[in-house]
Amino acid sequence: MGFKLLSKLLVYLTASIMAIASPLAFSVDSSGEYPTVSEIPVGEVRLYQIADGVWSHIATQSFDGAVYPSNGLIVRDGDELLLIDTAWGAKNTAALLAEIEKQIGLPVTRAVSTHFHDDRVGGVDVLRAAGVATYASPSTRRLAEVEGNEIPTHSLEGLSSSGDAVRFGPVELFYPGAAHSTDNLIVYVPSASVLYGGCAIYELSRTSAGNVADADLAEWPTSIERIQQHYPEAQFVIPGHGLPGGLDLLKHTTNVVKAHTNRSVVE
């Protein structure tokens, strides 16, 4: 069995187990497998329904001669939608809004960016022009300005110390501490036991640490421990890039980060 097929099978099995364990909360999309990078042309966006009122959005972007996937989250909030992270750029984010209108038909009224990198804030200006209120932590807003990236308009308070959590509509926002970046936030959907790890969490097929220019490698494993301790009931975990899975993604990420750190020390 090929690795790609095995990865998709694991996603399907995880979703099936969740649907059985929580039949009222989960209505997993039966329309197909989780979209992969090879299936999404740059400039297009796919939506994948995880649970009743919960979707991931998947886009792709060219970077350094390669094409990478990027995940975000959409959560229903009454007759409105909360968006977590842009679709990595203005063109993708405009396509995301169009796809949401086509498939869901509810307005996106608020959006949260989970850290300051372009795959999370690139497209904020498109959201703002569409009347979406954009939010991020003060740290993310400051770092985005320093980096020359787009800056969300509103500040999220109460997320300055490791372990801080605040309720934001249908989700809980959690600051686990520094990891992929010093400002990275985690998003949890309690009604569906869905954990969105953003770039602080890796997919299972990833074996290298990737972009760690703004990471705190020493603190990252401790931050992941905080996530595990705060959300032990999480059933569906979405990484910032690639295929979702279960809580095993947290341990896998820790292993990859520690291996990278150990290699760096040896070198």
Results as ranks from 00 to 15, higher is better:
92 N>A: 12
49 Q>R: 09
34 Y>F: 06
242 G>L: 03
260 H>Y: 11
24 L>H: 07
88 W>V: 01
24 L>S: 07
91 K>C: 07
90 A>E: 11
186 I>M: 10
249 L>D: 01
248 D>T: 10
237 V>G: 01
231 Y>C: 04
119 D>N: 03
101 E>A: 13
197 G>M: 01
182 T>N: 13
200 A>Y: 04
55 W>N: 02
267 E>H: 15
246 G>N: 08
26 F>V: 07
218 A>N: 11
33 E>Y: 07
220 W>C: 03
212 V>F: 09
265 V>Q: 14
249 L>T: 03
199 C>V: 00
64 D>Q: 13
90 A>Y: 09
221 P>V: 13
128 R>G: 10
6 L>P: 10
143 L>H: 14
157 E>N: 15
208 S>I: 15
127 L>Q: 01
61 Q>N: 11
96 L>D: 01
252 H>L: 03
91 K>D: 15
189 V>A: 06
123 G>V: 03
113 S>R: 04
6 L>Q: 08
164 D>K: 07
170 P>C: 04
123 G>L: 04
151 I>D: 02
72 G>T: 00
135 Y>C: 03
73 L>N: 00
102 K>C: 11
244 P>G: 06
57 H>V: 03
87 A>G: 11
238 I>W: 04
77 D>G: 09
65 G>T: 06
124 V>Y: 03
155 S>P: 06
96 L>S: 03
250 L>E: 02
2 G>V: 08
101 E>N: 07
227 I>L: 12
254 T>A: 10
48 Y>I: 10
198 G>C: 04
147 E>F: 13
160 S>C: 13
110 R>Q: 14
232 P>K: 14
243 L>G: 09
167 R>Y: 06
121 V>I: 11
240 G>H: 04
18 M>E: 05
148 G>L: 07
252 H>Q: 05
92 N>D: 03
7 S>P: 07
25 A>Y: 06
236 F>L: 11
6 L>E: 06
212 V>L: 09
102 K>R: 11
75 V>L: 12
94 A>P: 04
146 V>D: 12
162 S>V: 11
249 L>H: 01
36 T>I: 08
210 G>A: 14
37 V>P: 07
151 I>K: 15
190 P>L: 06
4 K>E: 13
215 A>C: 05
51 A>V: 08
155 S>C: 15
77 D>A: 08
258 K>Y: 09
93 T>M: 04
87 A>R: 00
192 A>I: 05
259 A>S: 12
175 Y>T: 02
134 T>F: 02
91 K>P: 11
76 R>W: 09
165 A>Q: 08
176 P>K: 01
103 Q>E: 15
34 Y>K: 07
45 V>F: 03
128 R>A: 13
66 A>S: 07
76 R>G: 10
51 A>Y: 15
195 L>W: 00
257 V>A: 07
212 V>C: 05
231 Y>S: 02
159 L>Y: 03
221 P>K: 14
257 V>M: 15
164 D>E: 10
216 D>R: 12
177 G>S: 04
95 A>M: 14
142 R>S: 12
23 P>S: 08
151 I>F: 05
148 G>T: 10
192 A>L: 07
38 S>H: 13
71 N>M: 01
222 T>W: 14
242 G>C: 04
38 S>G: 08
177 G>A: 01
178 A>V: 09
82 L>M: 15
121 V>Y: 02
18 M>Y: 15
44 E>H: 15
249 L>S: 03
62 S>F: 14
192 A>W: 06
100 I>Q: 03
29 D>Q: 13
247 L>W: 08
173 L>W: 00
187 V>L: 05
218 A>C: 07
229 Q>F: 14
185 L>T: 04
189 V>L: 06
86 T>H: 00
232 P>N: 07
165 A>T: 13
126 V>Q: 13
3 F>M: 12
177 G>Y: 00
182 T>Y: 07
167 R>K: 06
260 H>W: 06
94 A>I: 12
217 L>C: 05
204 L>P: 05
137 S>C: 04
112 V>T: 03
238 I>Y: 04
76 R>N: 11
234 A>P: 15
155 S>A: 12
224 I>L: 13
140 T>D: 02
197 G>V: 04
263 R>Q: 11
52 D>A: 09
75 V>P: 01
133 A>F: 14
188 Y>G: 01
96 L>I: 05
178 A>Q: 12
262 N>H: 05
228 Q>C: 05
201 I>Y: 01
96 L>M: 14
144 A>Y: 04
46 R>T: 05
141 R>F: 04
180 H>R: 02
103 Q>V: 13
130 A>L: 14
88 W>T: 00
94 A>W: 13
81 L>K: 00
111 A>T: 14
141 R>M: 12
129 A>S: 14
158 G>Y: 05
95 A>I: 07
198 G>S: 05
5 L>V: 07
102 K>N: 13
144 A>K: 04
110 R>A: 14
107 P>K: 14
244 P>A: 07
166 V>P: 04
263 R>C: 14
229 Q>C: 04
241 H>C: 00
185 L>V: 07
25 A>I: 06
65 G>V: 09
8 K>Y: 14
127 L>T: 01
91 K>Q: 13
96 L>H: 02
142 R>M: 12
64 D>R: 10
244 P>N: 04
90 A>I: 11
73 L>F: 03
212 V>N: 10
191 S>E: 07
59 A>S: 09
144 A>P: 04
171 V>W: 03
251 K>M: 07
134 T>P: 02
44 E>T: 12
